[in-house]
Simulated scan of single mutants.
Amino acid sequence: MLEILFEDDYYVAVNKPNGLLVHRTRIAEEKKEFALQILRDQLGYHLFTVHRLDRGTSGVLLFAKSSKVATLTVKAFEERQMEKLYYAIVRGYTPPEGTIDNPVKPDKDHKHKAPQDAITHYKQLGTVELAIPVGRYQTARYSLVQVVPETGRMHQIRKHFAHLRHYIVGDKRHGDWRHNKMFFDELQSPFLLLHAAMLGFEHPVTKQYMEVHAPVPQNMARLCTQFGWKDVLPAAVFPPASEAL
């Protein structure tokens, strides 16, 4: 079962775990379970996708209960009316804050398309240096960053931090395999450390502003506690119960 974060007559939002696809795709026909299918079976009625998260990304995933509301919500995403906030653990010490304004090239399946404008804002929340050799360095440095994407291109956040060479840990396509391997071997962390923590928008029917928050998954909560970062995350995404993980 999926963790339901919010539900009313028009929407249902869940906390998608790492590794789960949103819906069936041409490149993942072999997968038997998808968030859309699981939630339909869990609730017993039809739902409509309005956006997507990468398979490896955890966090807020919103579905509409009617095609009309779905159309309105997709339009809001396209017009950048939806507020999105992510947290990520990345390689190295990032600057205190910054904006990445760099066009995103389509993946190889859509290489005929032109690069798309893409903007991502970020803020460093904490750093850690681990006494674990990685590559030619005897220690490894990492940052916890808060990320606000202004646009919503495919793999935008992952590609943008790769552009800065502050690769997101656990990113097998755009990341650094040496750091991914260290986290897997030494810290028992096999997942992409990118979490969609908040989605905010004006409800198209009630016209009220609403925010949906998703607690970080257990693996990320454990690492944040180990690295001394639990106090820099809001309770909405790092509830007190997570401290014991």
Rank of each mutant, 00 (worst) to 15 (best):
H203Y: 06
H112N: 11
D176T: 04
P133V: 07
Y137T: 12
H203K: 05
A114D: 13
V128G: 07
Y209I: 06
D176Q: 09
L187Q: 10
D185F: 08
V90S: 02
L194I: 05
K207N: 04
V104C: 02
F191W: 14
R178Y: 10
R91H: 12
F201K: 03
D107R: 14
K172E: 14
Y142H: 00
V104E: 01
V147R: 01
S189T: 15
V147F: 03
H166K: 02
E211T: 12
P96V: 07
E186I: 09
Q124V: 13
V169I: 15
S143E: 01
A131I: 10
H163N: 11
K123H: 13
H179M: 12
M82P: 08
Y87F: 13
H121W: 07
V205L: 07
A214Q: 00
V128N: 03
E202M: 14
D107W: 09
E150N: 10
L193F: 09
E150G: 05
G126N: 05
G135K: 04
P103S: 10
H174W: 12
V212Q: 06
N219K: 12
H112P: 09
A162E: 06
P217D: 13
Y122F: 15
L187F: 15
K111D: 10
P115H: 05
M82E: 05
R136A: 13
L164Q: 09
P149E: 01
K172G: 14
T206H: 03
L199P: 01
R80L: 12
N219V: 14
P115L: 05
R153Q: 05
E211H: 12
D109I: 09
V145K: 00
A197V: 00
V147Y: 00
V90Y: 02
Y122V: 01
V134F: 00
L144A: 02
L193N: 11
M198D: 05
L192Q: 04
F191V: 13
P149N: 02
Q138R: 12
K207E: 07
R136T: 15
L193R: 04
H174R: 11
Q138D: 05
K111A: 14
